[in-house]
Computed example of a mutant assay.
Amino acid sequence: MKTAFRSCLLGPVALGYGVIGRMRNLIAAALIVAGGAAAAEPVTVAALGDSLTQGYGLPQGDGFVPRLQAWLAANGADAEIVNAGVSGDTTAGGLARIDWTLTPEVDALIVTLGGNDLLRGIDPATSRANLEAILTKAAERDLPVLLIGMEAPGNYGPDYKVEFDAIYPDLAQRFGTLFAEGFFAPLMQDGADPAALTPFMQPDGIHPNAEGVAKIVEGLGPKVLDLIAQAQSS
């Protein structure tokens, strides 16, 4: 009789513990799934630039950002590239909008600015100061950066060219960023003759055509993969 009575008392208690145990298991499983989903979120990369980044003169799918997005997907990278390119922007313009470009979702930054500084003959010291300020903003957020260089033409004189061309490798070394020698460098692999660029350029001679963008993406893509790897490890 005492045994039966004890069983009646313990039965509901044991049942309660069983329910609690199952609930704990369900909660643990949900946390694991949530953690896995968070880990699977793509890396968000902001591409800060001018018309070269924005995709001037091209159908939407042929621009630099969508082509890069497709290349990364084909090479197994889970990343979202945000097109922060504004046609006509100088380094000053990029600096003016860097704060709202670097939203909390951004994990890494590509900087391709300086081409319009060259077209306007802006003092290289000014361009350097603007790019330095942009990289400082990224460093304050501990964001990995890929800095893509620009090369000055010779029509401003040798002193201007030397001073401008030095900006990008100098800043990349100082801030410890990834560095690509030039946006158009992948088009020059078959020879240094500027005439070799003609088949890959739009009629304005400034912006790449769809074929040119495809070659540029193939050349810069591995650098972007390195950038994504840095973001994932940080």
Score class of each variant (00 low, 15 high):
R6F: 11
S7W: 12
S7A: 14
S7V: 03
C8P: 00
L9E: 12
L9V: 13
L10W: 14
L10Y: 12
V13W: 14
V13E: 11
A14G: 13
A14M: 11
A14L: 15
L15I: 09
G16M: 11
Y17Q: 08
G18E: 06
G18C: 08
G18S: 10
V19C: 10
G21M: 05
R22H: 10
R22I: 10
R24S: 09
N25I: 03
L26E: 15
A29M: 04
A29Q: 13
A30D: 15
L31P: 00
L31Q: 15
V33A: 12
G35A: 08
G35D: 13
G35Y: 01
G36A: 14
A37Q: 13
A38E: 15
A39Y: 12
A39S: 10
P42R: 04
V45M: 05
A47V: 13
L48F: 04
L48W: 02
G49D: 08
D50K: 02
S51M: 01
S51H: 05
G55M: 04
L58N: 10
L58F: 07
Q60G: 15
G61P: 00
G61Y: 00
D62S: 14
G63M: 05
R67G: 00
L68N: 07
Q69A: 14
A70D: 13
L72K: 02
A77F: 02
A79T: 10
A79Y: 06
E80S: 07
V82I: 15
V82P: 01
G85N: 09
G85A: 07
G88K: 04
G88R: 02
D89K: 02
T90A: 03
T90S: 14
T91A: 11
T91S: 15
A92E: 13
G94E: 05
L95A: 05
A96M: 07
A96E: 12
A96S: 15
D99H: 09
W100I: 04
T101N: 08
T103D: 12
T103Q: 14
T103G: 05
P104N: 06
E105M: 00
E105N: 06
E105Q: 13
V106K: 04
A108V: 07
A108P: 08
L109C: 08
L109H: 07
I110Y: 02
I110P: 01
V111Q: 10
T112V: 14
L113D: 04
G115H: 00
N116E: 10
N116R: 01
D117Y: 03
D117V: 01
L119N: 12
L119Y: 05
G121S: 09
G121Q: 09
I122Q: 13
D123T: 07
D123E: 14
P124H: 03
P124W: 01
T126A: 14
S127T: 15
R128K: 14
R128P: 03
A129Y: 04
A129D: 15
A129P: 07
A129H: 09
N130V: 03
N130R: 07
L131S: 02
L131K: 03
E132N: 12
E132D: 15
E132P: 00
A133E: 11
T136H: 11
K137W: 00
K137I: 00
R141F: 00
D142F: 02
D142R: 12
